[in-house]
Nucleic acid binder design. Structure first.
Length: 567
RNA sequence: UGCCUUGUGGUGUAAUGGUAGCACGUCGGAUUCUGGUUCCGCCUGUGAGGGUUCGAAUCCUUCCAAGGCAACCA
């Protein structure tokens, strides 16, 4: 047990309800004034944004009051678990900025003590071995409104129960043939009290204990006791465990006394609009190869978001914003995106890339000539300095940034119109060349040499400013555009069909001039069934580009433009 | 028709018997070497009824609504 005695919290305002409970317990001197939480993932998948909320709570409350937080892998079901997941979980928690020090534990470490407790309960007549099938047991359980009936094996002798349980663990029986149940109350209004199963037989090897055990404890018979063995004082979990709490307390009663007892507290889990959060479905995506892996940038996993360009701070700020309550909220994804934009806008190094290029020839710029222009790295923070970009006679701009017949209030390039090329010159469109299909192939412009950025002539104002890259030095990179998985029509859609339709990876070609970093734009492709939002979602092809290649603004401009058009 | 949990603007969250505030969002305006960013402004709320109280989002009560609980998952 840890020896983290903490000082009394002086102020109780500004606390969420969990922190308030913790503060009250500390004030009352419970558990000798110790505070110890735990984050208990089952290593059966990668952590997602929902887990990030739990991590921020478990580690955050410990940090706030000077307590400690354990990392405990809840590995009581060897069939689903794997060391690959253990490793990823460690990495993701660290990435979020939390540390469990040397307090890394496993529920499987407590198998011997749990087994001993089970034996004790058998001897005290509080547990029995049931030989029925899961179907029979389920049928006897009744329904929430109809009481259950007792198992015919409920009153077996202690000797027989002991013998059977021992042989269950010795591997003498096939899976499903026997279970160990707690003898409580088959008529309880709480379904979890209707003789819950404590142990089941599993012959699948465990990722840590191998074939040592043939019986494995169920969650309800493992969690509270594990908390107790570890010295956990506050076991914070999500709302779906509320009905389990009486059972948690029931088993803890067998161990705890006045001086120390762990306490379960529940908060609301994270729901995000348009976002699939079910571990089962995420696993299905991975298994069926519909995504490149758990860390595919389209996934709502922590590792996926990391690859998408999200920052740990933005995720933590977001979680801070949505808070912890007992109300099952559906949080707007706009809140998350705001947090990401907010942080990225502050720290991201800007660069330019053209996603859908069209060539512009500056006819009065000398052939073969080129020059370097200066671009600031981050307008939000001049201390970040600047970098140089080559400018020459032929450049690329976005196809969207030119219109042959522009409506009023179109501030970008059009015949006879002037725009500024960001960081370079003001240019004027003098003509276009089209292919046989009437598609614009090249745009011809003249530039005004006096208007180079930084020169006195640069004071001249034009309405539009465009990003660009020099054609001869541009790097041609294939970049996949990863859009978040979601369905515009139904914020909560998770049906199988919708689910699959969400998964059409879009491929885009990008021509880049400089190295760039996470971008800050977003957009919506109008009229599409599936709306695509693009906040830092551009990720280079995994193998082709070592650095994050991200573009920043055009798409947002287009989005605003579409909105402006409606007026 | 059992037990448990929860209802504050469009969304989320504060107010812990004493002025219903904040953020996102929406809409409008200013600034801008990108229409982004930044700044300013507007908008909308205590599920319903009854009670206690000088005073109720908060306490009591009835009703209404939403969610959870019947895995050999966690």
């Amino acid at each position: 047990m840890a020896e983290n005695i903490i000082s009394q919290p002086e102020e109780s305002k500004g606390l969420n309800f969990v922190e308030q409970i913790v503060a009250d317990d500390l004030k009352a001197g419970k558990n000798g004034g110790r505070l110890n939480t735990r984050f208990p993932p089952e290593p059966n998948g990668y952590l997602h944004i929902g887990h990030a909320k739990a991590i921020c709570m478990d580690f955050g409350v410990a940090e706030k009051f000077g307590g400690t937080c354990n990392l405990r892998f809840d590995d009581t079901n060897p069939v689903k678990e794997d060391v690959e997941y253990v490793d990823s979980i460690r990495e993701d928690i660290h990435w979020l900025g939390f540390d469990w020090g040397d307090r890394e534990y496993y529920a499987s470490d407590y198998f011997p003590q749990l087994f001993d407790l089970a034996v004790r309960l058998i001897k005290e007549g509080k547990a029995y071995v049931d030989d029925q099938s899961s179907e029979e047991i389920a049928a006897q359980k009744g329904t929430p409104t109809v009481p259950g009936v007792n198992s015919p094996y409920r009153d077996r002798s202690v000797e027989e129960n002991l013998d059977l349980f021992t042989r269950m663990n010795a591997g003498e029986f096939p899976e499903g043939s026997h279970v160990l149940r707690a003898k409580i109350d088959m008529a309880s209004s709480n379904m979890h009290f209707r003789d819950p199963i404590m142990y089941r037989i599993i012959h699948h090897p465990h990722h840590r204990t191998g074939n040592r055990w043939h019986v494995y404890p169920m969650y309800d018979f493992a969690h509270g006791q594990s908390d107790y063995f570890e010295g956990v004082t506050h076991s914070i979990c999500t709302l779906e465990f509320v009905p389990h709490r009486p059972l948690y307390d029931y088993f803890v009663d067998e161990l705890a006394d006045e001086s120390y007892r762990p306490r379960q507290i529940e908060f609301n889990r994270l729901n995000l609009t348009y976002t699939v959060m079910s571990k089962r479905k995420l696993l299905q995506l991975v298994k069926e190869g519909l995504v490149a892996g758990w860390d595919d940038p389209r996934m709502p996993t922590i590792s996926g978001m990391r690859r998408r360009g999200f920052t740990p701070l933005s995720i933590r700020n977001f979680i801070d914003t949505i808070g912890y309550t007992k109300y099952e909220a559906l949080n707007s994804v706009a809140l998350l995106e705001y947090a990401v934009r907010e942080d990225l806008n502050r720290i991201a190094t800007r660069g330019m890339a053209v996603l859908d290029p069209v060539k512009v020839v500056i006819t009065n710029y000398p052939e073969g000539q080129s020059e370097m222009v200066e671009m600031e790295n981050n307008p939000e923070n001049p201390a970040d300095g600047s970098h140089e970009m080559p400018f020459s006679r032929e450049i690329y701009i976005e196809r969207d940034d030119f219109m042959e017949n522009p409506p009023k209030k179109y501030f970008r390039l059009a015949p006879d119109a002037e725009v500024r090329l960001k960081g370079a010159y003001i240019i004027k469109c003098t003509g276009v060349k089209k292919d046989v299909d009437g598609r614009v192939e090249e745009i011809y412009c003249t530039y005004d040499p006096d208007t180079r950025s930084g020169l006195p002539g640069s004071q001249r104002k034009v309405k539009g400013t465009l990003h660009w890259v020099a054609a001869d030095t541009a790097v041609d990179a294939t970049v996949r555009l990863y859009d978040r998985l979601f369905n515009v029509e139904n914020p909560a859609a998770e049906t199988e069909r919708d689910f699959r339709e969400m998964l059409n990876p879009d491929s885009l070609r990008i021509v880049e001039g400089v190295k760039v970093e996470p971008f800050l734009a977003r957009s919506a492709s109008q009229g599409a069934k599936f709306q695509f939002q693009r906040i830092g979602y551009f990720t280079p092809d995994y193998d082709s580009t070592p650095d994050n290649l991200i573009f920043n603004r055009t798409i947002a401009l287009k989005d605003s433009w579409e909105k402006a058009q409606k007026k």
